[in-house]
């Protein structure tokens, strides 16, 4: 009974504000005659019509595919390079200025150049996502790898845990809290870049659809696309939170015990 009550409470806390906001939107826009801000009811009706049709395959799927590939690429490259740089002082010092330079370039600025070289297909869009999202992963991995505890490192050495086993059982898990923090930032950057890369020179995708609706004055459709992007981002971060809770269960437990909680 206690747990049910607690669950009910936290569910209420989580949903209260969204419900209020949606209700407000619904009520305030109900009689709207403004062409650019149609009633929420209209937007929702359009939402079903637009997105549960061919556009699911034609626009949503390509977007999500590019997002997943780009994000995965950023994570794999970021962690891989991060381990390399984190473990090698010389390499780190050698590459630092160059990396700082590239990091300073806003990824959308690369789009025109990339489109020249890689065309306006999926490849260029994926590269844009990778290029923008790799930085938080890379830099956090470098820091995480460098911060491996000295005693744990000595322990591993004395028990013959070396090479790949050291990477797998010591370095990666020990850096994982930082790596995952970087991955969380990279996820939101990926979603932003997914949309931006579709705003120019594109045949499909969510960003493309939204800009197309806007240009053809299909305003409720445009709104519904923005709504869908919000939902997509929300679901992604929910999935990520689940992943984080699973993989960092030890870390949160450790932190709690260090703070003297149970």
């Amino acid at each position: 009974m206690q747990t049910v009550l607690r669950w009910g409470r936290s569910l209420f806390v989580a949903l209260a504000l969204p419900v209020v906001l949606v209700t407000l939107w619904w009520v305030l826009s109900a009689g709207s005659t403004n062409y650019y801000s149609p009633p929420l009811q209209t937007i929702l009706t359009t939402f079903g019509e637009v997105w549960f049709g061919p556009r699911l395959v034609d626009d949503v799927l390509p977007s999500v595919t590019r997002l997943v590939i780009g994000y995965a690429g950023a994570v794999v490259l970021g962690v891989g390079l991060g381990i390399l740089l984190g473990a090698n002082r010389t390499l780190r010092r050698l590459t630092e200025p160059v990396l700082e330079f590239f990091r300073a370039i806003p990824p959308p600025a690369l789009i025109p150049i990339l489109f020249l070289f890689a065309g306006i297909g999926d490849t260029a869009k994926i590269i844009v996502i990778v290029f923008g999202a790799i930085w938080p992963v890379l830099l956090n991995t470098v820091e995480g790898v460098r911060a491996v505890d000295e005693v744990l490192s000595d322990t591993s050495r004395s028990y013959g845990v070396s090479g790949w086993a050291r990477m797998r059982h010591l370095v990666l898990p020990s850096a994982s809290p930082q790596i995952i923090a970087g991955m969380r930032q990279a996820l939101s950057i990926s979603i932003i870049l997914m949309v931006i890369s579709e705003l120019f020179g594109s045949f499909n995708g969510l960003g493309f659809a939204i800009i197309q609706f806007q240009r053809s004055f299909a305003i409720p459709e445009m709104w519904s696309g923005i709504l869908l992007l919000g939902i997509l981002g929300f679901v992604m971060s929910l999935l990520f939170a689940l992943f984080e809770r699973r993989s960092l269960r030890w870390y949160h437990g450790l932190r709690r015990s260090q703070r003297g909680e149970k």
């Binding site: 505890d149 000295e150 005693v151 744990l152 000595d154 322990t155 059982h169 010591l170 898990p173 020990s174 994982s176 030890w250 870390y251 450790l254």
Partner: peptide, 8 residues
């Protein structure tokens, strides 16, 4: 506290 692997 630093010689056992906290993730294991």
């Amino acid at each position: 506290g630093r010689s056992l692997f906290p993730w294991m």
